[in-house]
Structures are given as structure tokens and as C-alpha cells.
Nucleic acid binder design. Structure first.
Length: 94
RNA sequence: GGAGUCGGCCAGGCAAUCGCUGGGAAAUGGGCUCGGAGUCAAUUUCGGCUAUUGAGUCGGGAAAAAUUGACUCCGAGCCCAUUUCCUGGAGGAAAGUCCGGGCUCCACAGGGCAGAGUGCCAGGUAACACCUGGGCGGCGUGAGUCGACGGAAAGUGCAGCAGAAAGUAUACCGCCUAAGUCCUUCGGGACCGGUAAGGGUGAAAUGGUGCGGUAAGAGCGCACCGCGUCGGUGGCAACACGCGACGGCGAUGGAAAACCCCACUCGGAGCAAGACCAAAUAGGGGAGCAAUGGCGCGGCCCGCGCUGCUCCCGGGUAGGUCGCUUGAGGUAUGCGGUGACGCAUAUCCCAGAUGAAUGAUUGUCCUCGACAGAACCCGGCUUAUCGGCCGACUCCAUCU
């Protein structure tokens, strides 16, 4: 998965993805403690990514996706993160 | 009313929609086990022959029975999956991982050394470095609060600068010139000395004040205060005392957060502890089979090299299950205790994840929401923290 993925990024997330051939989409999370210090923030980011993925998983079928957090992610509010993820999903499904 | 001290509590609310996860119930599907019924098959129960026996073999099979196996149906239990409904779902610090315990595994005859920790006294506790009450000392008008708070008379060492002198104490300025010696212009001077009252230095100079005393002085003497030793009284004790006697007090300076001494305590590792189930692959052990074997070299023999197949066993990896939340548990009430806390009765079940749940969005209200996320479980300490509420108490001001 980490060997030859396609990659896209903005200031909040880095996203790696490949076509797996599976019927459903699969999500991996890599929220590094180095990037996001507080456990509260790590939990929040994971919840938001999972929630957003859940809403869009039908359009993402057949892809394996890994989401990586960046240093700025912990300081950003939920609405902004949802918007960023939504844009990523749309870019992926084209 | 203002200022403050201590203790306790809360940690945005409500609604709708969409999710995650633990538990319970129901339905559907699947698997396993047990019981009942049915169908089918085999064997036996029949007869003959052989044979010492065990048994073998041949024949017959209409009906019935027994046993075993397979399948079908029904019922019950358990497990798994899906769906629906009900219900629970982060903290006061969940944090730092700094102490103390439970639990688990390992080690262990007893004693000592080393090492680590604790350090006024008594109590609480499973235990503690925690808590409660008390003592002593510092701070505060006070409510209160803070304290590494055993020993420097076992020993080794330490103390910059200043200062004469810093532990075997000492004599720079100053004060004195009585006794002794010498000189003298008879005023005194020098030597030998005496002294620690005054000055100055320092964080600290070895009791303080007063009187006597003296050449000047000095616990040199006395009184009071302080200090020490012994005793008395009160207190479980730490300790206290307007108590008694004795000691002139250079006894006994500081620092133990330099080493050290004394008393007491302490085995190690941690839930990735530990227990159980257990695939594939490789390897190990055993049994059976094949060993005139199979493959390669070769035309063939001899020879040389390589090598099995089946089953079982244990170790062990991935993975899974348990440990895993009912506990030194919470809440009431009563009793004992100044209190920490203990006892009794009643009642409640209050997160249990494992790529790791406990949430998202929208609306609305207000006082506009801080610090922050469980990971085996408890008791503490420490640190972070928007604000709000309640209770007890102190000081100041004012009114009656």
C-alpha cells in the first residue's frame, strides 16, 4: 500500500490511494503522534475522517485509501476539515 | 457592604436526523450436540460344511427384533451471522507515570553486606512518600498557612569576600600602666605586659541587661532573663511548665541538601503479566509400509550419490478466546470516634474498545462553554483548567 500509491494533498491532509479491485472501498488512518500531539485531537480527526468516508464510500468503491494528518490539522475546525475531505473524495472518484 | 481563608459540588442544556460499540429480547438463516420418529444399507439372530477353540465358508432371506452407519422430518440446548426493538457508553484530572497496593509469572533454608527509600509524635489504612489529630519552628492583625522537622558530644572533610581572628579561636585600632625593670628635665617616657568594655568586618565574633568590682577590664562576683544537666509535674508520645536543685556558661558556633552515623521499611519483572485453542510452511520425535524400492551416473552388473509414503505426538508462528471489569465498589440511614476512618443494615450494577467505540450535522436557548480522551484494577501525590454554585470561618467599615 505504501509502495506505489497515487497521492494528493492539501494543507490539512495527505491522501494515498490505489485501485484494489475489491467491491467496497477501504480506509486506513495514519494520524501520527508526532504531527498531532494531544489524544483528544487525534480522536477528533479520526472520527471526522471516518464520518466523511462513511457518507462517500459508495462513490469510492474499489479504492484503498490512506489518510495522513498534517501539523495544521489539529488546529482546524470540523467544518473546514469536512470540506477538505469532500473535495478529496470528489477528486478521487473522477 | 468590602477584603480574605478553608472545604465540597458542577463541567453547556434541549430537540431532530445519521452513525459506532457493550448488554438484553425477538425473528430469519447456518453450524454443532442431544432426544424422538421414519427410510435405506450392513451385520447378527436360521440351516449346512470345516475346525480342539476362536472362527471361517456356503445357502436362505417371508416377517420380526437388536446393533451400527447414512439421510430426512420434528423438538430442545449452545454457537455464529443479519435485521428490528429496548438499554448502557470517558475524567476531575482519564494526564505526568512520581509513590503505595491488589493480581500474574519467576526466584526464595536462615543470617549478613551492598543498594534504594523513609525520617518530630500518635492514629487511620491493604499499603504509602498519603490522610487525620497533636507538638515544635517560620509567616499572617486573624480565619489559616508553610516546613528534607533524627544525629554535628563516632569519624573524615567544607566555609568565597571582608575581617586581627571563622574552631586548636584570635588581638588591628583602642583602653590601661597597678605589680616588675630601666631612664628622667620629676611633667612623664620606654620595656615587660594586662584587657576584650568601645570601634570596625561579616550571614555568623561564643550569652544579654543592670549593679558591684578594677589600673583598665572580664561570669571576676551578684540579681533578673537566657542556656545546660539531673529531678518533679502534666501528657500514650512528640513535647510543655511563672516547678525544684545544681552548673558560671570558651560547656555545646554553622552546615547532615558533602560524605557519614542511627532507627525503620524494601526479592525481581510486569496485562506485550499470564492461561487456553490453534491453520499454512519449515524443522523435531515415534509407529507402520516400502527397502531385490525410486531417481541420477551407465549399454548392463558391481559401485557411488540423492531420496520416500501414510498416520500419530509434542514445541511453536499468524490468528482467535480468556484475563476484562462485582470492586479495599457506589448511594442512603444508624451507631462509634475531635477527625482521618471503622462497623451494621438496606439498596444499586455504573465504559470495556483492540487499526482501538463513547460521535457527527442542523436548529434552538443561555451565563457563550476551560483543561483535556479510559487501555488490568484500585488508593494517593503532582501538574493543567473558562467559569459557576453551596457551606463554614476571619478581618475592616456601617446601621440597629
Amino acid at each position: 500500500m505504501f509502495e506505489k500509491p497515487a497521492r494528493r494533498a492539501d494543507s490539512f491532509f495527505t491522501i494515498l490511494y490505489i485501485d484494489s479491485g475489491q467491491p467496497t472501498a477501504r480506509l486506513g488512518l495514519a494520524i501520527a503522534k508526532k504531527r498531532v500531539r494531544r489524544a483528544v485531537d487525534r480522536n477528533r480527526i479520526k472520527r471526522i475522517v471516518r464520518e466523511s468516508f462513511r457518507h462517500s464510500q459508495l462513490t469510492l468503491a474499489g479504492k484503498d485509501i490512506v489518510v495522513l494528518a498534517r501539523e495544521t490539522t489539529a488546529r482546524t475546525d470540523n467544518a473546514r476539515l469536512f470540506l477538505s475531505l469532500q473535495q478529496h473524495w470528489q477528486g478521487l472518484s473522477k
